[in-house]
Design a protein around this nucleic acid. Structure first.
Lengths: 172, 172
DNA sequence: CCGAACATGTAACCTGTTACATGATTAC
DNA sequence: GTAATCATGTAACAGGTTACATGTTCGG
């Protein structure tokens, strides 16, 4: 119980999950996973990932052991304390049920204030972008954890498309 | 065109919208609106709102005029440049279509890795919290912009509830 | 041998958070 | 008069972003 971290941040939880549930054992692999994932909002910048991992190691939630081979790489592993923290973070109902930062939702009210022509154009542009996103997401991820996240992202996008369709219909 | 702000942040856009589309004319009213709104993720802290307004004034997107009466209050108004910036911000398809920071989505994959009993408990706790949120949101907002946002928040929560129901059904 | 990918980090900067400070006005 | 609300701000801190620095290893 060396943990000095009371509640994990979203990034810290995501990092723990990345190491524990997915095959990412080095800090670099964790960072790259964030960079490649199109659905995650963070940039996966080194200036965020490496300090986060250092914090987690300091708190005893991650253990780092030098890897065999010439590479400087350190093999990361989530400790039992880390698993407990990760579970607590993932299962906190208050945080899980939060709406989060939803750029679409934030803008939705504003679109309704716009004149019909501009509104229609804006809605159709966003719908096109969402369809592009859905097509991209069609490439199935091999990892079950990420696949589940993609699945929910697609549901969210379909919900948005439905809403846009209703808005456009109300304009016609 | 004194604007030194290239792209508005989410908070800056929300502040402009708050002043322009809703009746909030002073910095204090804007701040309070953020604090009261249960759906917005930011805390509506003075340390965020006041500097944001100062930036927007500096960029010429907001005009501030002293209000009549003893109060120190300044009446804020979105300038024409501000309206243009707000519209551009609201209608940028890339940003509007983004998934955002979704705590539920981030955790969804992790829940699937949990043993059935714990998973069921976690899912039901989150579902209960979502239902509580939906009940709260039932209180209809008088403002059309905020009401639209609430409506979308409720859709999102219902989508989540559906997903949880399917997950629980697959466990049975 | 050379470029791409691996691997780890640091520094300056920006923005949001909490917590505090200050004072005026209004309702009771 | 005194408590609540209005109104504006600052300071210390936390955390993420970009951009840079550094060196290794592997494939062609």
């Amino acid at each position: 119980m060396t943990s000095s971290i009371a509640g994990l941040t979203e990034l810290e939880g995501a990092v723990l999950s990345e190491i524990h549930h997915r095959a990412n054992r080095t800090a670099f692999q964790v960072q790259r996973a964030f960079q490649r994932s199109p659905s995650v909002e963070w940039s996966g910048s080194a200036g965020a990932v490496y300090p986060a991992i250092r914090r987690l190691i300091g708190a005893g939630l991650i253990a780092a052991t030098p890897m065999a081979g010439g590479r400087k790489a350190q093999a990361l592993e989530v400790t039992s304390a880390g698993i407990a923290a990760l579970t607590a973070w993932a299962c906190d109902p208050m945080r899980a049920a939060g709406v989060g930062l939803d750029p679409f939702r934030l803008r939705s009210g504003i679109w309704r204030t716009m004149p019909d022509a501009a509104r229609r154009m804006a809605l159709e542009a966003v719908a096109a972008e969402i369809r592009r996103d859905l097509a991209r997401e069609g490439a199935v991820d091999t990892d079950p954890v990420e696949r589940t996240r993609d699945e929910l992202a697609m549901r969210l996008q379909r919900t948005r498309l439905d809403w846009i369709a209703e808005e456009l219909a109300s304009l016609a």
